[in-house]
Design a protein around this nucleic acid. Structure first.
Length: 482
RNA sequence: GGCGCCGUACCCAAGUGGUAAGGGAGAGGUCUGCAAAACCUUUAUGCGGCGGUUCGAAUCCGCCCGGCGCCUCCA
């Protein structure tokens, strides 16, 4: 079955066909860099990471662009988020942007998110944004008032298609504007005049000002991906108005279709309520990482579908931790047995139908990136592998290597939850450490052979205090970090 | 008020017409010096409720109850 993706534009799963054979252009709305990322950001960018990874796995050459919003994202009161934070911290807004951008990448790296190919900053693309606004003015889709430029929503009949609302519907819900300089309340700013005290400002044909929030995504996506490209992603909460506005601006400026597939990920909830910065019920990734390994967080996220909400709780995270542990145990044992089988020269083929697991896994991913389903397949495989490893020598080293390679391909390359190369687990903190632990294991083995249980247990207990857990197996003793 | 989504076991969570995946937690067993890990068995005659369509529905339709999202900044 070919890859199918759910397209918000059509509200259906559609077969994915890129604009240009073998290549995919993908744009995802990135963070506004005024505060540390929370679990919700984690879910969003892990979700799109999986999408990018999977497209690449399928052989597409993916160009993944994700913006960094460092200007123009206003609050209710009309204040720029960046500037507000800079006043709180008493530093220049660009310093906030720099600090938080670094923090963002730090967190994403920890989560195993492959970095976008291009991370354009809004403030670095003021010229492109001005050009786009000029184009919209020239074509009559926008109008200038008092040094600000607005998009005339009435000029674009498709406005509301993405979010499924009509012009009239939008009128009823729109709050009263403090500035009534707009022709219609639905009109949105392309360029805003800067008040005298406004810190982030640039010269423009309409005087000193700053770009509207939506225009950056249109300008930067089209700059790097072309006027029409394959995938535009973002949080479902940005469907309206942000993405609706992007479409309006872009389509009107170029006369072309802009993004073909719109992919929206769902939100993280806490006690059933949306987790967001403005509600203040958010858990930052940095805090979460203090309690749980970033990979556990990633695994937790991938255990639900990207279009479903995911309810966050310590209990749920703990469950995910145990689950991932189970998967890692299998792989650890598999890798250990690979070395043993080499030594013992086992030659029997393992009787596991790897192709079946692989095709079931890929079928799940082909169905709108169903990672929870794919993970379930991995667990089923693990059960069979564990059973196999419990049998003495009913496999060859080569067949174990095939199994291990499949884990790396599906769980590693695609899902990014299995990270170590075959031997790295045993040498993760340096060869010397591993050798010392092995030495203690050998001494303990000696004690055990003399039935000196108290000494054997003491070695194990002392190591456990240091965070090293020993497990006695038929073929020897393995260790892992607690 | 408008638009939309969701409600699956103690918890998390797949499943959009064919007779309930997976993980965690719990119970029993096997293995083991013990422990850990692993394996086996077990835990929803039922998928918010009530009707309807169908040979057949968690899945489609209607109504009701409960929760959430967007409509205003948010991934």
């Amino acid at each position: 079955m070919p890859l199918h993706v759910y397209n918000t534009l059509t509200r259906r799963k559609e077969e994915f066909k890129p604009l240009h054979e073998g290549r995919v252009g993908m744009y995802v709305c990135g963070p506004t860099v005024y505060g540390h990322s929370h679990i919700g950001h984690g879910k969003s960018y892990v979700s799109f990471d999986i999408i990018a990874r999977y497209l690449r796995y399928l052989g597409y050459k993916v160009l993944y662009v994700q913006n960094i919003t460092d200007v123009g994202h206003l609050l209710d009161d009309g204040e720029d988020r960046m500037i507000k934070q800079s006043k709180i911290d008493k530093v220049h807004p660009m310093q906030i942007a720099e600090t938080i951008t670094r923090s963002y990448f730090e967190d994403m790296d920890a989560l195993g998110v492959v970095r976008p190919d291009i991370s354009p900053r809004a403030s670095g693309h003021i010229i492109e944004q001005i050009e786009l606004v000029k184009e919209l003015l020239a074509k009559g889709y926008a109008y200038e008032v008092n040094g600000s430029v607005y998009f005339d929503v009435k000029k674009f009949s498709d406005y509301g298609r993405l979010s499924g609302r009509s012009f009239d519907e939008m009128i009823t819900g729109t709050r009263v504007e403090t500035r009534s300089e707009k022709r219609n309340p639905q009109d949105f700013a392309l360029w805003k005049k800067a008040d005298p005290e406004h810190l982030m400002r640039w010269p423009s044909p309409w005087g000193e000002g700053f770009p509207g929030w939506h225009i950056e995504c249109s300008a930067m996506s089209m700059k790097y991906l072309g006027e029409e490209f394959d995938i535009h992603g973002g949080g479902i909460d940005n469907q309206f108005p942000h993405h609706e506005c992007e479409i309006a601006q872009s389509v009107c400026a170029t006369g072309r279709a802009f993004a073909r597939y719109w992919i929206h990920n769902n939100l993280v909830t806490v006690n059933g309520q949306k987790m967001s910065k403005s509600l203040g019920n958010f858990v930052t990734l940095k805090d979460a990482f203090k309690k749980f390994d970033p990979l556990v967080v990633r695994f937790f996220i991938l255990q639900s579908h990207y279009r479903s909400t995911l309810d966050f709780s310590d209990e749920a995270l703990q469950g995910a931790k145990m689950g991932l542990e189970r998967l890692m145990n299998t792989i650890r044992n598999l890798r250990f047995q690979m070395t043993q089988a080499d030594v013992k020269g086992y030659t029997t083929k393992a009787a596991i139908d790897l192709m079946r697991y692989k095709s079931e896994f890929l079928a799940a991913m082909d169905d709108d990136f169903n990672s929870p389903q794919a993970i379930a397949i991995l667990f089923e495989l693990s059960r069979e592998v564990n059973a196999l490893l419990n049998q003495d020598g009913s496999y060859s080293a080569g067949s174990l290597r095939e199994i291990e390679a499949l884990y790396r391909e599906l769980g590693g390359q695609i899902l990014g939850i299995i990270t170590d190369s075959p031997r790295a687990v045993l040498e993760s903190n340096g060869k010397l450490e591993a050798d010392l632990i092995q030495l203690l294991i050998n001494l303990r083995l000696l004690a055990r052979s003399e039935k000196n249980w108290s000494l054997a247990d003491r070695i194990r207990d002392e190591l456990k205090k240091l965070g090293i857990v020993l497990e006695d197996k038929k073929d020897g003793t393995t260790w892992k970090r607690a």
